[in-house]
């Protein structure tokens, strides 16, 4: 588990370093994800070494967003003055993305007759 976290953090650190040195305007964490993907593909890192730590983080992913959401309270004044653009963009854009993505994926998906009920 500790080794897994060390690998994840090392990838993150290398990702941040690469992004900064090369002046790429990509977040360092995305670069870190790509690095880990390559490391797994090339066999530099074994799946078993990172799986436990990765699953711990990903299975509690929703919890990690809570503090960012609480941050909204600092911007209550911006939200009060611009609530309409924020709300409209949030709601309409989210539904537009669901619709476009889902329909495009559905059209291009190889045929199989499954459907999902909640």
């Amino acid at each position: 588990m500790v080794r897994g976290f060390a690998i994840l953090l090392l990838c993150l650190l290398l990702g941040e370093l690469i992004v900064r040195f090369c002046g790429i305007s990509l977040p360092g964490n995305v670069a870190g994800m790509v690095l880990l993907l390559f490391a797994l593909r090339l066999g530099l890192v074994q799946l078993g070494q990172v799986k436990e730590a990765a699953n711990l983080l990903l299975s509690n992913l929703a919890l990690l967003f809570v503090p960012a959401g609480v941050g909204v309270m600092v911007y209550l004044d911006i939200i009060q003055t611009s609530w309409l653009p924020i709300l409209a963009s949030l709601v309409l854009s989210t539904f537009a993305v669901l619709l476009v993505t889902g329909k495009v994926a559905q059209r291009l998906k190889p045929k199989s007759g499954e459907s999902c009920d909640d």
Partner: peptide, 9 residues
């Protein structure tokens, strides 16, 4: 941050 890296798994 590490959670994004973990998405590689």
């Amino acid at each position: 941050g590490p959670a994004v890296v973990a998405l590689a798994v």
